[in-house]
Design a binder for these strands. Structure first.
Length: 422
RNA sequence: GUGGGUGUAGCUCAGUGGUAGAGCACCUGGUUGUGGUCCAGGAAGUCGCGGGUUCAAAUCCCGUCACUCACCCCA
């Protein structure tokens, strides 16, 4: 085997057909519901000032402490490839004054994200996601709306085994009391060094530990839900009520926390069991304080991000066919030099008329070209040989039935447009 | 960062010291102008890389790299 000199960097991957089209289709499907809901499209740079993430995502998070692709530019700026989308989108909204217009501002976006982690199934250093954010309202209806829209996207892809986990972390008023109670409880446990230090820095995230012994020790840990203020509880109940009204089932998970510091109140995660050890295909929550952290006005907001590749893995786990396979409807098979010229003109005409068409090239024999026609998935093969040209016709063959008929050269285009449009 | 597994043909893999294999895919022919089935043939591999043991290494030993799965954490 001749080994190529270069390979995709560790933890990255190439998307090649047919998976390339599949991921494209997944992203489209994930964007469909939010677009139909009137969300506007926003695009931000793939990298930002490192400080945006450090401050927005949280200095103590794993993402910021060890997972960012950070570098210094020639000009001396400290920048990082974006590890997530919410902070950049909020930054862009503030910078462009979107929050000065009508509220709420509803936005969606997509693109590549980067985290320097050890790769494993469903986890890469480069991945893509589609996100949506609703800025500038505390109304629990938008929390519920986002969850419903995400579930609609999964359903549109044929997924039936995506579950929603939901929790409330409480607002800035109710969270400190819980944090103290949890911290006190955790200090009483016998934990390894890393975890013990996490107890001091960000005790909520200890709840996220998946190690069985740790989970066992957490069995009697105090729950956020017991510390919610009346307002938080009302908000949370309203979100859950609206989900039920929309026919979206959910699982209450009082242990659900997420690794980003900016979340407040509503928190949710879309999980699937077909992804190996990873289970989240998407997730999000409310971040009422992030705008102020970034130097903006108070702008209570909520959003989510859905992972494209993980969603595709989930689809494969459910045995769903790859979406978005392209293929053509018509395949031209020219024989001889003159025929190749005619076929080139014809395939151009067909494509311009909106018919998906391809043509055999490289002067392969009839048999080989027919084989290529078969593999292309086309319904119709059009054989154009010297004899046909002399007769002023092309042979149009229905590859499904095997029937073939001569069609006058001048009529081939309209014949095929009609045939493929039915 | 830590631990396990795997590196042999384009793909999936068999091959435990003695001439490098299968299935699928690909190409050609059987059909001087017809695909999907079938038949025959063909092309394709420094057995990840380096070193060692041996008359002899894909196979045993050492090292190394890559991939992969898992932990922490997340899309």
């Amino acid at each position: 085997m001749n080994q190529p000199t270069f390979r995709a960097p560790k933890g990255t991957f190439d998307l090649v057909p047919p998976r390339g089209e599949a991921v494209l289709a997944v992203r489209d499907a994930m964007a469909g519901p939010v677009r139909r809901a009137g969300y506007g499209y926003v695009e931000t740079p793939s990298f930002e000032e490192t400080g945006l993430f450090a401050r927005g995502v949280g200095e103590s998070t794993d993402i910021v402490t060890k997972e960012m692709y950070s570098f210094t530019t020639r000009g001396g700026d400290d920048v990082s490839l974006r590890p997530e989308g919410t902070a950049p989108v909020l930054r862009a909204a503030l910078e462009n004054g979107l929050h000065r217009g009508a509220l709420p501002v509803k936005l969606w976006y997509g693109g590549s994200y980067y985290r320097y982690e050890r790769p494993q199934k469903g986890r890469f250093r480069h991945f893509s996601q589609v996100g949506a954010e609703v800025l500038g309202t505390e109304d629990p209806a938008v929390d519920a709306e986002l969850i419903v829209l995400a579930m609609d996207a999964y359903r549109a892809l044929g997924l039936t085994e995506v579950r929603v986990l939901i929790n409330s972390l409480g607002s800035s008023e109710s969270r400190p009391a819980y944090r103290d109670a949890l911290q006190q409880f955790l200090r009483g446990l016998d934990l390894d060094e890393d975890t013990a230090s996490r107890v001091e820095i960000n005790p909520l995230r200890v709840l996220d530990d998946k190690r069985p012994d740790v989970q066992k020790a957490l069995a009697d840990a105090p729950l956020v839900t017991d510390f919610l203020s009346d307002g938080d509880r009302a908000h949370h109940d309203r979100v859950r009520r609206l989900l039920t009204d929309a026919g979206v089932p959910y699982d209450d998970d009082p242990r659900l926390v997420r690794g980003l510091d900016y979340y407040t109140r509503t928190l949710f995660e879309f999980v699937h069991d077909g992804l190996g050890s990873q289970s989240a295909v998407g997730g999000g929550g409310r971040y009422d304080g992030l705008s102020e952290l970034l130097g903006g006005p108070r702008l209570p907001s909520v959003g989510w991000a859905l992972g494209a590749e993980r969603t595709l893995l989930a689809m494969e786990a459910e045995g769903l066919p790859l979406p978005g396979t392209p293929g053509v409807d018509v395949y031209l098979v020219p024989l001889g030099d003159d025929a190749e010229r005619h076929a080139f003109g014809l395939v151009t005409e067909l494509r311009r008329a909106g018919v998906a068409a391809d043509v055999a090239t490289g002067g392969r024999g009839l048999k080989g070209a027919m084989k290529a026609a078969d593999r292309s998935g086309a319904r119709y093969a059009v054989v154009v040989g010297e004899r046909d040209l002399a007769d002023g016709v092309a042979q149009v063959k229905d590859l499904r039935s095997g029937e073939q008929e001569p069609v006058a050269l001048g009529d081939v285009r309209s014949h095929l447009i009609t045939a493929t449009s039915s």
